[in-house]
């Protein structure tokens, strides 16, 4: 026997559930719109010329985004070079010394750094590197991006290494293996997947960063390998060309967007696979 009150409550329950489903999938609509727009507008500008040539002066058709591609790769290289060693060491430190006054402060600093808006990081990198070295440069861009990457790598490293049971470490130490060897041969290899994931996500994040690069890497219509000279980057290129009035440049910007989105999403996908395949399990 089901009276009216109950069936109304069940109806309400169902209504609620399906409105949740509706609202949730509504929230995914913008994602499809963005991907669709970027793919639709970007695909037509994709060609061999597009990735092997430099941009043309405003209003002239053709040209490519080689400077942006090389610049972005170099910036990723430099920021990785600066942030990976520091990030892993710090993550290691925090997982080895979990409690204590010093660890508390280090963790706090990492948290603060992680929450700092990227535009503020750009200001700091400008003050530290650009003013000191007397010019915008690839290096200053690398420093700015590494400040964004470090906390991400630290967090990933710390979280993974914490999952490794202390028995593993103790067994190694008990066998007479030195502390550093234990870390390098036992601890880090067991947590490698987590660390790699952190690095991949960090790279994906900085590949799309724009604001700090405006004050540091600055942009360059030519390809540049010199760390002391300005470079372009895909996001800077997109920003500059997107707000211009020239349709040829909009076309370049859509192409560059497609390129960037593909790279970033690919990195995210790979990191997912890494974390699923080589999950830290004990």
């Amino acid at each position: 026997m089901v009276d009216n009150g109950v069936s109304f409550r069940i109806f309400k329950d169902n209504l609620f559930k399906w409105s949740l489903v509706l609202v949730s999938f509504l929230a995914t609509v913008p994602l499809f719109l963005i991907l669709f727009y970027v793919a639709k507008n970007g695909i037509s500008s994709f060609s061999w010329t597009f990735i092997t040539h430099l941009p043309k002066p405003p209003g002239e058709a053709g040209g490519g985004i080689l400077n942006g591609i090389v610049g972005t790769l170099l910036l990723i290289g430099w920021s990785s070079l600066l942030s990976i060693p520091l990030g892993i060491t710090l993550g290691l430190y925090l997982s080895e010394f979990r409690e204590g006054f010093f660890s508390y402060w280090v963790r706090l600093c990492i948290d603060v750094l992680q929450g700092t808006p990227s535009v503020v990081i750009g200001i700091v990198a400008y003050a530290w590197i650009v003013i000191t070295m007397g010019g915008f440069s690839l290096f200053s861009g690398g420093v700015a991006l590494s400040l964004i990457m470090v906390p991400m790598i630290v967090k990933a490293t710390e979280e993974t290494l914490k999952l490794i049971p202390s028995a593993l470490k103790e067994a190694s130490l008990a066998l007479g293996v030195s502390y550093s060897k234990t870390i390098f041969k036992v601890i880090i290899p067991s947590g490698l997947s987590g660390i790699v994931t952190g690095i991949l996500l960090g790279v994906a994040r900085v590949a799309g960063e724009t604001a700090p690069l405006l004050f540091t890497a600055f942009g360059n219509p030519f390809v540049n390998w010199n760390p002391l000279k300005p470079v372009s980057a895909l996001p800077i290129l997109i920003f500059n060309y997107a707000s211009s009035p020239f349709p040829e440049w909009h076309q370049l910007a859509w192409g560059a967007s497609l390129f960037l989105v593909t790279i970033v999403l690919l990195l995210n996908a790979v990191s997912r696979v890494v974390i699923r395949k080589w999950k830290v399990q004990f």
Binding site: G135, F136, F222, N226, K229
Partner: peptide, 10 residues
């Protein structure tokens, strides 16, 4: 690139 450095002006 440091060698060829001065062939670029900013």
């Amino acid at each position: 690139s440091a060698k060829a450095g001065d062939s670029e002006l900013v």
